[in-house]
Computed example of a mutant assay.
Amino acid sequence: MLDLDSTPINANHWDIFCVVVDNYGDIGVTWRLAKQLAAEYAITVNLWVDDLNSFSHILPKLDPCRTYQTFYDVNIIHWNESSTEKYVSGSCLIEAFACEIPSSIIQKLTKLKQDSPAKLPIWLNLEYLSAEDWVEGCHGLPSCQTSGLQKYFYLPGFTDKTGGLICEQNLFSLRDSWQSDKANKLALFAELGLSGIEAEHRVISVFSYETPSLLALIQSWQTQNDPIHVLIPKGRSLNSLTSILPCSVNEVVAGQQITLGNVTLHILPMTDQQGYDRLLWSCDFNIVRGEDSFLRAQWAAKPFIWHIYPQEDDYHLIKLEAFMQIYCDNLAPDLAKPWCELNLSFNQGDQIDTVNHWQKLEFNHLPLLQHAKKWPMTALNSADLASRLVQFMKSR
């Protein structure tokens, strides 16, 4: 248990501030980063989070009613007006995804600049992951604030001129060991209360936003010759399937199985991040959304669809196109084309095209899987985000 009133705080500690958006996306990224910094670099990390209820869904042991608590050597602080009054600056302050730290902290930093400028933390704005070209030019740039303080833009990305990608040092070896034995996935499915799944059955995980494309895919899978199991949590994905569910979404419960022709829907219980990684490793295909699950699907070395968060003027499709371009750089054109078209049509909600492009990919499943296995090392580009972040701090 962390008590800011009595526990001396390491002057070299890092503070990460996170506003929980869309339930699990932003907190998923910052929680992984905080754990990695603590585990691999022995950095004392204070993770300030405004919504502990949502956070507890991916960290079940977290008590939403407690202001200070520690897990995996990370100090988790409920970010509210009372707790921020006790903020003490360390060596690094990270605003995750432009969440804007409180004015009371900015006032403390402004005073610190006047009294002891050498003790000012390096202030970073950790941005969302993007594959767009402009990321290289903006990563690491300073931005002078109206307070006179300086903040740096830290931009994750897929090239060596960006901030890199979150990836724990032992992740790929853990994944390979897991995937080398089919008994692991069957044991996981049993642990999650999923029955009727055989080792040779096709298994697809779904964690998407609402889209008619999902309904179209599931309806097309119903007529397949071989069994298909769709693993789907209670949430936004199910809102797309109301017309084929036997009950309302509110009545659906974890562990429930719904049979639709040759498709079985399995309603997943919530799991922690390690459990979600293993779920992605255990499926043949993953449909994911946001940023955290999007990146973890890539690390799973399995084919996937990325359902990107919709933005005004369809700007999200530009971000999707930028990623698809680099992902398909070494992919055969006859495979890259339907994969890109599948992702685009799924994001546009085009039911007919989504099904058509999925069916085209079925004939190229093995080459797509081979590409998915090679991609993680290409994407990681020799250094992960945490190691680049530590190096960035040293350079400043």
Rank of each mutant, 00 (worst) to 15 (best):
K319P: 01
Q351G: 05
Y327G: 04
F346L: 09
S345W: 14
D350K: 14
P333R: 03
E362P: 00
N347I: 13
L335N: 03
P367F: 05
I305P: 00
D313V: 09
A332N: 05
T354L: 09
Y309M: 08
D334E: 14
L317R: 12
F346W: 15
D314F: 11
Q359I: 05
W306K: 08
A297Q: 11
H316V: 10
E321F: 05
N343W: 11
K319S: 06
C328A: 12
F323D: 01
D353W: 11
N347L: 10
N356G: 05
Q311A: 10
N330P: 04
D313C: 05
V355A: 06
E321T: 05
I352M: 10
N364C: 08
N356E: 14
M324C: 08
L344R: 15
L344P: 00
I308G: 00
K302L: 05
T354W: 13
I352K: 14
E312A: 15
Q351L: 00
I318T: 15
E362M: 13
D329W: 02
F346M: 06
I308Q: 05
W299C: 06
D350N: 15
A336D: 03
Q325T: 08
D329V: 02
N364Q: 13
F363I: 08
Y315A: 13
H316R: 11
H357V: 00
N364A: 12
I326H: 01
I352Y: 12
F323C: 01
E312H: 13
Q359G: 01
K319Q: 08
P367D: 02
D353E: 14
D313Q: 15
Y327E: 03
L317N: 06
